[in-house]
């Protein structure tokens, strides 16, 4: 058994075990925490497979932000004393087991067949590698996201905005409900003064570096969102009912800049959504970073607006 095979097998077994722990039996809170651990180990798996971009996104967004959102929803459910549903009956488990085994078999057959069919070069990836050097962007993933499949990414940021609007509509107007810790903790001011600029600096670095090496708008926005969540929990950002113009602008700036850029280039005789240069890539990514970050923080806080709390 080689070293590489051992890594493959132990990661696979670890992930299956964690998924089992997250899904079957045990308390729900334990399941949620196991799900976050699952996401972190999946991030290690992405890194091991050779995709640091996916590893960063999975750890920050798939495990971190998603986990924080699920935990805060769990807390809100506890607060309204929602009725815990009863355990499923054995008959139902039996049927589910048969369906699940069949589903596993189907996916395994499809997956193994697709691996067996992996002969020769993947065509689209080949074209990407040939076209990438002309764009001035070194990171193939950023190249695909912003240049080659910009319509997908535009729709993606629109979906994020739509999901936010839908979530707000479902929850309706509400007053602040997160537990606010005492604001006069002695250390907090000093820590926040250091960590906020540090996190913003690293986010901008991630955005800038994402043009050439792994990184980019999504990873950077997750970092900013983490900072925002921390500030909300530390009582430095307060949920408000009123939505300030800045928050509204931040929510839509990603979609807005992308649309204006995509349409604007047509004035210069370029096709719709053509990207005129690397500066445009960074501009769009920066706008997307701001929008996604503020969306995630507002979803976590469960409020309409946010305002800073001075000392």
């Amino acid at each position: 058994m080689t070293w590489a095979l051992m890594m493959d097998v132990s990661l696979a077994i670890g992930l299956l075990f964690l998924a089992w722990q997250a899904l079957i039996g045990g308390s729900l809170l334990r399941g949620i925490i196991m799900f976050i651990v699952f996401g972190m180990v999946l991030a290690v798996a992405w890194a091991w497979l050779g995709s640091p971009d996916l590893a960063m996104a999975e750890a920050a967004i798939g495990a971190g932000v998603t986990g924080a959102l699920i935990l805060v929803a769990y807390w809100r459910l506890k607060r309204v004393n929602a009725v815990e549903p009863a355990d499923p009956s054995p008959l139902r488990s039996g049927v589910a087991l048969v369906v699940a085994v069949l589903g596993t078999g189907l996916v395994a057959a499809l997956g193994l067949a697709s691996v067996a069919a992996l002969e020769g070069e993947p065509v689209a990836g080949q074209l990407l590698n040939e076209a990438l050097p002309e764009t001035g962007i070194g990171n193939p993933i950023t190249g695909v996201l912003i240049i080659f499949r910009s319509l997908d990414t535009l729709l993606e940021i629109a979906v994020v905005l739509a999901a936010y609007v839908a979530a707000r509509a479902a929850l309706g107007k509400r007053q602040v409900d997160l537990p606010t810790p005492s604001r006069d903790a002695p250390l907090m001011t000093a820590l926040v003064t250091v960590i906020a600029p540090l996190a913003v600096l690293v986010a901008i670095y991630l955005l800038k570096a994402g043009g050439q090496i792994p990184g980019g708008a999504f990873q950077a926005s997750a970092l900013l969102a983490a900072l925002g969540v921390m500030l909300v929990l530390a009582g430095r950002l307060e949920s408000t009912l009123a939505v300030s113009l800045w928050v509204r602008l931040a929510l839509i700036v990603g979609t807005l800049v992308f649309c204006l850029m995509g349409l604007g280039v047509m004035l210069f005789g370029l096709p719709l959504l053509a990207i005129p240069g690397t500066w445009a890539v960074y501009l769009i990514e920066a706008a997307m970073m701001v929008s996604i970050a503020i969306t995630l923080v507002l979803l976590f806080a469960g409020s309409d607006g946010l305002k800073g709390v001075g000392r």
Partner: peptide, 19 residues
């Protein structure tokens, strides 16, 4: 620990992993 506050552990963990 209150479940809602463990989001605090989730939040900064994003920060640690987002690099």
């Amino acid at each position: 620990l209150e479940p809602g506050d463990e989001g605090g552990a989730g939040g900064p963990a994003d920060g640690e992993s987002g690099k």
